[in-house]
Amino acid sequence: MSALEHADLPLTTRRSAVRMLPPPPQTRTWPRSAFPLMILALLAIGMVGHLALQTRIQEQGFEIGALQTQAGQLSARQSVLQAMLDQQATPQQLAYAASQAGMVANPYSTFVNLATGQIVGLAKPVTGTEVPIISAAAAPAGTIPAHVAAEAASAQAGPEPTQDLA
């Protein structure tokens, strides 16, 4: 007979020498190695998180570099356009453009008194010879070469932002 069949008999009534030992204690719900493994897992998660953060910072470093390059290109383009604009605003250019448009200089000033509507001054038709010092000289040359000016003015000026390696 197997020991099991003796199992329900009370200890004291068994005649064989077989003895039952007390039942084993409950097995653990968690294996003993769970705690160190959990710690290791936490460590691994921490390291992964740190690495992910660091990689993101690195990516942003690249993005910053690209944006700075783009900013530099736009700034360079702006400066060229600004120089072209300054050239157009000079009085020489203005005189030339005005005379090309058929305008003449008028040194006679007239004032309107806004309160009373009265016109004070010398309103005279001009013949174009009153201010001989403004003449229709040739348009002054700019300091920006023509092909550069054309490039800067075009909408798609400049290459795509590249990485600045200098």
Binding site: G72, Q73, A76, R77, S79, V80, I144, V148, E151, A152, G158, P159, T162, A166
Partner: peptide, 12 residues
């Protein structure tokens, strides 16, 4: 050389 022009040279 204008920086604007140089950027294009450098890119090429």
């Amino acid at each position: 050389v204008l920086t604007f022009t140089n950027l294009q040279i450098a890119a090429r």
